[in-house]
């Protein structure tokens, strides 16, 4: 089954750390995690995201296109990145989520991807 792991962190928790040594250690943890999950062969796709201040949200209301500066949900926690992984079950997806540095201070939302619709016959 495919799951999306969504990595959330609260910048108020000093993520990414201001201090250079701490920041390097933090990057190091992510590098180690990325290597481990990459080598396990479960990754379908994954990326870190640019910070929320780069986000733009679009809505269509009638035939009006409304473009707004900022993320869709204005929350303290920010979505910092994601992986889509293909694993046998939720338990394994949760195990990968728990290993991520985001789980230490923030949190990881794990959601199954919807099955593809059946091919038309």
């Amino acid at each position: 089954m495919k799951y999306m792991l969504m990595f959330y962190d609260n910048p108020a928790n000093n993520i990414p750390p201001q201090d250079e040594t701490e920041r390097n250690a933090w990057f190091g943890r992510w590098m180690a995690y990325n290597t481990a999950i990459g080598e396990s062969g479960v990754v379908v796709i994954g990326h870190a995201l640019q910070p929320p201040h780069t986000a733009t949200t679009v809505r269509m209301r009638g035939d009006q296109r409304q473009v707004q500066d900022g993320p869709f949900a204005d929350t303290k926690e920010m979505l910092g990145g994601f992986y889509v992984i293909d694993v046998p079950d939720l338990d394994e997806a949760l195990a990968w989520a728990a290993r991520s540095p985001a789980a230490l201070k923030g949190g990881v939302e794990v959601r199954p991807l919807m099955d593809s619709p059946p091919e038309p016959s």
């Binding site: 799951y3 079950d89 939720l90 394994e92 199954p112």
Partner: peptide, 11 residues
């Protein structure tokens, strides 16, 4: 049904 919980013995 939808989240794919493991049905085997727990760890």
């Amino acid at each position: 049904r939808d989240a794919g919980l493991r049905f085997e013995e727990p760890e």
